[in-house]
């Protein structure tokens, strides 16, 4: 395969692929019978994000974004905590980060490799610079807004200056 024939990143990674990965993660990691439903609901006013970076032939980040309360509920579900046990901030960061990590690792595997995965980070937004959205799935979990975004240069498979076939 010549460089000119390399597929654009969007040909390898579409919302259906991201959804199929989420379909495997939610019932296993979040809990039996849980699902990431790809039907958008109103976005929350305040958000928290967890993300991992991907570095290799393609550079970008996989980001999971939701309201802080949703992040807390996700952590409770992942950790299978039952009242009166409560999750603390560190638990929430850890669980949300692990979800981003598992999403990121599986998304990385459908992209050209070899590439490496960064450690999970958490904050209001990724600090990976201004990146385009390659793919974004706005969905919900237990009725709460949840967004999975893959960010990165859409033409990064080509060396700079190479024309990308349309």
């Amino acid at each position: 395969m010549t460089l000119q024939e390399a597929p654009p990143i969007t040909a390898l990674l579409d919302p259906e692929t991201v959804q199929s990965i989420a379909d495997e993660i939610w019932p296993t990691l979040v809990g039996d019978g849980e699902a990431f439903v790809p039907v958008p609901v109103a976005p929350p006013a305040e958000v928290v994000s967890a993300w991992v970076t991907i570095s290799g032939p393609w550079n970008g980040a996989v980001v999971l974004t939701c309201a802080p309360a949703t992040a807390g509920a996700l952590a409770e579900s992942v950790l299978m905590t039952r009242p009166p046990t409560v999750v603390d901030d560190e638990d929430v960061a850890d669980a949300l980060g692990e979800l981003a990590n598992v999403l990121g690792g599986n998304i990385k595997s459908v992209l050209p490799g070899p590439s490496s995965l960064g450690l999970p980070q958490i904050g209001s937004a990724p600090t990976t610079g201004r990146l385009d959205d390659v793919c974004r799935v706005n969905g919900q979990w237990r009725g709460q807004s949840l967004t999975i975004t893959v960010q990165g240069a859409t033409q990064a498979l080509h060396p700079s200056g190479t024309e990308v076939p349309q």
């Binding site: 990590n101 598992v102 990121g104 690792g105 599986n106 990385k108 595997s109 490799g113 070899p114 590439s115 995965l117």
Partner: peptide, 9 residues
């Protein structure tokens, strides 16, 4: 036990 799942890895 990892999310890394490229064949090469």
């Amino acid at each position: 036990v990892t999310t890394e799942s490229e064949t090469g890895q």
